[in-house]
Simulated scan of single mutants.
Amino acid sequence: MPFAFTPPTRAHILGLVLGAIGGFTFYLLHMPLPWMLGAMAFTTVAAVSGVRISLMPRVRMIFVSVLGIMLGSQFSPAILGHLQNWMISFLWLGLYVVVATWAVRWYYLRVAKYDPVTAYFAAAPGGLSEMILAGSAFGGDEARISLAHGARILVAVFVLSFGYRWFGGYAPPSANPLASQAPLELIDIFWLALAGIAGYLGARLIRLPAHALVGPMILSAGLHLAGITASKPPQELVTLAQIVIGSMIGARFTGLAFGLVLRGILLAIGATALLLLLAGAFGYAVAWSAGLPFASTMLAFAPGGLAEMSLIALALGIDSAYVSSHHVVRIFMIIVAAPLVFRLLGGRRGS
C-alpha cells in the first residue's frame, strides 16, 4: 500500500465529529462505556437516516493498533499460572463455535428465509470481513451477510454494556483501568510504539486476521510478560480509539436502504439473543469446569467483536487478557474452519 497522503473527505470528517459528539453526550449522561457506545449510537442513527459517513482506513488502523497495545499491556507473568484453566476454556470454545453456528444458521434459514449460503456465513459468530468475502465468493448475499454481522455486534455491545452495569452490578473501578498506572517514560513510549508499528507490519505480512489489532496486542503482550515495560498508552489515545471503534460500527450501515437495515437489526436481535443464551450456558460450563469467574467467561464467549468485547472488559475491570485471547482464538477458528466446513458439507456457489 503506498503511503501517499490522502486528504479526508466530508464523510470522513463527519463520521469522526458525530462519533465524538455522541461519546461526549453519553459521557455527560454517565452511560456505561460512554465514548464507544455514544459514538456507535450517533453514527448508526446518522447512517440509517441517509447521512454518508465513513472513516479513513489509516485512521482506523492507527487507533485499532492503539487498542491492541492496550490489550497486550493487560498480560502479566501471573497469567502463566492460569494457562491450564485457559486450555479447558479453549476446548469449550471450539464446541461453542460449532453449536452457535448451527443454531444461528437454522434461525436465518427458518425465520429470515435466507438462502443456505447466506444463512451459513451470516451465522458464523465472528470474522466479519472474512465471512463477507467468503460468503460472496460462494454466491451468498453480501449485503445481508454484512448486515447480519454488523447488527450483531451493535446489539451485543449495547446489551452487554448495559446488562453488566444494571444486572451484574459492574461499574468502572475507582482507578481508571484504561489509564496507565506506571510512569510513561521516553523508553516506554519507544517500546509501545515499537509494539504498534512492528506488530502491525509483522501481522500484516503473515496475513493474520484482524492484523491491526492482533499484531500489536501479541507484541505488546510479549513486552509486558517479559517485564520490559509496564506502561499503557495514554488515556487520551485510548478514548480516541473508543470513539473511532464506535464510529466504525455505525459507518458500516452507510449506503444501505433503511428497510433493509431495520429488518437486519430486528433479525440480529433474535440471533444475538440466541447467541447470548448459548454464551451464558457455555460460560457457566467453563466457570464450573475450569474454576473461572462467570463474568469473564460470559464476556469471552459473547457474540461481539474482538475490539468491542475487549473494551467492555477493560472498562469494567474484568480480565481483559482472558477475554481478548478467547476472541482471537474464536476468530482464527471461524476463519480457518468456516469455508472448509462449507465445502466438506457439499456447499457450492448458489447452493
Rank of each mutant, 00 (worst) to 15 (best):
R204Q: 14
S180H: 11
R207C: 09
V157W: 01
W166V: 14
D188R: 09
S161L: 01
L205M: 15
I197C: 06
P172I: 01
A156L: 03
L147E: 02
R144N: 01
G202V: 09
S136A: 15
A195E: 12
S161F: 03
A203K: 10
L208Y: 05
I145N: 00
D188A: 13
I197R: 01
L201I: 10
A151I: 11
S146P: 08
L208V: 13
A193C: 15
R144T: 01
D141I: 00
L192W: 07
L184F: 07
P183V: 11
Y170C: 06
P177V: 09
L154A: 03
R204K: 14
F138V: 04
Y200F: 15
L186R: 06
R152P: 04
R144W: 00
F190C: 11
L178C: 07
L205H: 13
G202K: 05
F158A: 01
I187R: 08
S136D: 15
R165N: 11
L147I: 14
F167T: 12
R144V: 00
A175G: 06
W166C: 08
A198M: 01
G150R: 12
G135P: 06
A134G: 05
E185H: 15
Y164D: 09
R144E: 00
S146L: 07
N176H: 06
A175R: 14
P177F: 04
A151V: 09
F138E: 12
A193N: 11
A137G: 13
W191F: 14
A195L: 08
G140Q: 02
A175K: 12
N176I: 00
L186A: 15
A182H: 11
E185L: 15
A143R: 04
A175W: 03
L178M: 15
D188Q: 10
R144C: 01
F162N: 07
A193Y: 03
S174D: 14
R165Q: 14
F167D: 12
A171P: 02
I187E: 13
L184C: 04
A203Q: 11
R207K: 15
D188T: 10
A134Q: 14
N176M: 01
S174E: 15
Y164L: 15
G163Q: 08
G169P: 10
F167I: 12
D188G: 08
A179D: 13
G196Y: 03
I197L: 11
L184R: 04
R207N: 14
V157Y: 06
S161G: 10
S180V: 02
A179L: 02
V155Y: 01
P173C: 03
A134I: 08
F158P: 03
A151R: 03
I153T: 09
P177K: 09
W166R: 02
A148Y: 03
L154W: 14
F162R: 02
P183H: 09
A195V: 08
A137R: 10
A203P: 10
D141A: 01
A182M: 07
G140W: 06
L147M: 13
G150S: 15
F167H: 11
S174K: 14
I189K: 10
A182G: 05
Y200H: 10
L154T: 08
G150C: 10
V155N: 05
R152A: 04
A179H: 02
G196C: 07
A195F: 05
W166P: 05
I187M: 14
G199N: 07
G202A: 13
G196F: 03
G202L: 13
A198R: 00
L147T: 07
V157R: 00
P183K: 06
I189W: 09
